[in-house]
């Protein structure tokens, strides 16, 4: 993929990341265009989650260049990066279990940057009816699938322009995975770019056109997702 500087909303070049003393990413580069859905595939421990945490500034990292919507995000604090319009849905979901469902959404709420509030709790309750039914209940009482929906909905409350989605289908029943896929399609329709980390290549192919493969902390493939599927067989 040619690095179309202007069209890429997220542009990462030469990203290294560290857990304490140990380096876990080695010169990762990736570009995502506005409204594009890209799958980040790789085995357990290959570095998928680390890429996302490093972009968000949640772990120590350095990069040759790293911009989001044209802003250098290498030295910005995490909350600044989120406020620029980059959403993050972590693998562990990290729901605030002490808060109600509605309160979880409130934590994610940010004023819309373009002036247009696309995602409201009302709309999100329509997309995820389960959440609407338990809005006043403690988020700790929800099933894994419901927590995953809440985690995505909570991030959408910030009206992001791009979302880092870390293994949304992991450990979920096929029915919920399907619902997840629909939600991602909905996000794309609103022009949100998505970086989706997945082990389930078949699921990734239903929503993403392009794939990146990561192995031991480095990108080893960048191209159309069908090509990657052919290669793996």
């Amino acid at each position: 993929m040619t690095p179309g500087q202007t069209s890429a909303i997220l542009d990462v070049r030469g990203l290294d990341a560290f857990y304490g003393q140990a380096q876990s990413l080695f010169g990762v580069s990736l570009q995502i265009a506005r409204g594009e859905a890209v799958a980040l595939v790789g085995r357990n421990g290959a570095g998928k989650s680390t890429v996302m945490k490093a972009i968000m500034g949640l772990i120590d990292r350095r990069a040759q260049a790293m911009t989001f919507a044209g802003h250098d995000i290498r030295t910005r604090p995490t909350h600044h990066i989120a406020r620029l319009g980059l959403g993050y849905v972590p693998e562990e979901r990290r729901i605030f279990t002490d808060l109600t469902v509605a309160e979880n959404l409130e934590v994610g709420r940010l004023p819309a940057r373009g002036g247009r509030q696309i995602w409201t709790s009302t709309r999100l309750y329509e997309i995820f009816p389960n959440l609407g039914e338990m809005a006043r209940r403690s988020a700790g009482h929800m099933s894994g699938g419901e927590q995953q929906m809440l985690s995505i909905a909570r991030t959408l409350m910030g009206n992001p322009d791009a979302v880092l989605l870390d293994e949304p289908s992991e450990g979920l029943s096929p029915l919920i995975v399907e619902q997840m896929g629909q939600a991602i399609v909905e996000m794309k329709r609103e022009g949100i770019a998505v970086l989706l980390s997945e082990q389930n290549l078949a699921f990734a192919a239903t929503v993403a056109e392009r794939a990146l493969r990561i192995e031991t902390g480095a990108i080893t493939f960048d191209g159309p997702i069908e090509q990657l599927m052919d290669r793996i067989g």
């Binding site: 968000m56 949640l58 604090p77 995490t78 909350h79 989120a82 406020r83 993050y88 972590p90 990290r94 605030f96 279990t97 002490d98 808060l99 309160e103 979880n104 409130e106 934590v107 994610g108 940010l110 909570r154 991030t155 910030g158």
Partner: peptide, 24 residues
């Protein structure tokens, strides 16, 4: 209050609160 909800959320997981755009 929004402040209180954020305080309770941060008590549980302040990194996640930051990742949602809240100035800690």
């Amino acid at each position: 209050t929004r402040f209180g909800i954020l305080v309770r959320a941060a008590t549980q997981d302040r990194d996640m609160v930051a990742a949602l755009g809240v100035n800690q």
